[in-house]
């Protein structure tokens, strides 16, 4: 019990805080471990020979170390590097533009004096309930907008996410209205208030939605599946998805004698692909974390 005994010079910790911290540590440690373990297994499996996985399953430390899976993936390194480039470019441009539009729209919809705000919010929300379906969207993109093999086809569909818009609106609603009112008295217009006050006051909200947008764009293979047929324009996730799904489909069909010559990706390769695809995006998270510190935002403006 020595651990929690207050030192003489330290501020006295009330019993409730001790309870909170002990319970918190236990809960978080437990949850963090069950979240971390599979990832460790995954990384370990990606460095294990296929034979060892097949015979003795997954393990924390590779039973039989092998980099075959990565060698297979990087057999053609220019493909992977180019795909990284495509993913990076789409993620960057999409999330920057998306974040701006979403936060600007959310600000407008949070204004209590905007007469039609409920109707307009409903206009947005309705699209999450009803959609025209795959075919009509495909026809629009390919035949009317001519976006086949165009990067815009990967950017546009994820740009205005209504869920994020509504979450963002709830964040902005939480900012005290008095701050905006005093700015208005000083003669600031709506756009100025948005750019000069709302954006700096919402760093943690922007970081959250920005993170989600980045993840959405980075992880999106679906739209590439629909609109991209040029191999050189495939984003990383779609390239990996292709490898991942190929084995199942090939096994289902396995039609001609020679199809077996095309390599069917093994379990180790699937794991390695996850590592390759998530690698860089994992670094984004700690960066975003910096903005989740209590009280920084409001304090800064008030001070």
């Amino acid at each position: 019990m020595k651990l929690f005994q207050p030192r003489r010079n330290a501020i006295k910790m009330p019993a409730s805080t001790v309870v909170f911290n002990v319970a918190g540590y236990l809960l978080l440690s437990f949850f963090a471990i069950i979240c971390l373990l599979p990832f460790v297994f995954l990384i370990s499996a990606s460095f294990t020979s296929e034979k060892a996985i097949a015979l003795s399953g997954f393990s924390l430390i590779p039973k039989e170390f092998s980099t075959d899976a990565y060698r297979l993936l990087f057999r053609n390194p220019t493909d992977i590097l180019r795909a990284y480039g495509v993913s990076g470019m789409i993620t960057l441009s999409g999330s920057v533009v998306g974040l701006f539009i979403i936060s600007m729209t959310a600000y407008v919809l949070s204004r209590p004096y905007l007469r039609y705000r409920y109707q307009i919010t409903f206009y947005f929300y309705f699209t999450t309930l009803f959609s025209g379906g795959l075919l009509s969207v495909y026809i629009l993109f390919v035949r009317y907008l001519g976006l086949k093999n165009n990067y815009l086809a990967l950017i546009l569909p994820l740009l205005v996410n209504v869920f994020y818009l509504l979450i963002m609106r709830s964040f902005i609603t939480a900012i005290p209205e008095s701050i905006f009112e005093s700015a208005k008295i000083d003669g600031a217009g709506e756009l100025t208030i948005f750019l000069r006050l709302v954006l700096p006051l919402s760093t943690s909200a922007l970081a959250t939605i920005g993170l989600f947008l980045i993840l959405d764009y980075w992880n999106d293979w679906y739209h590439a599946m629909l609109y991209m047929s040029d191999y050189k324009k495939f984003p990383l996730q779609y390239m990996l998805y292709n490898l991942l799904s190929a084995s199942e489909a090939i096994a289902r069909l396995s039609r001609t004698a020679s199809i077996s010559v095309v390599e069917v990706p093994s379990r180790a390769v699937r794991m390695a692909m996850t590592v390759v695809a998530t690698g860089p995006i994992l670094l984004v998270y700690p960066f975003v974390q910096r903005y989740f510190v209590k009280g920084v935002t409001l304090g800064a403006v008030k001070g």
Partner: peptide, 20 residues
């Protein structure tokens, strides 16, 4: 300020709704 989002949603979501 609403226009960009409203137009995007109109084009990308409402137009294809004919597919229903």
């Amino acid at each position: 300020m609403l226009l960009p989002a409203v137009l995007l949603v109109l084009l990308l979501n409402y137009l294809p709704m004919a597919g229903i």
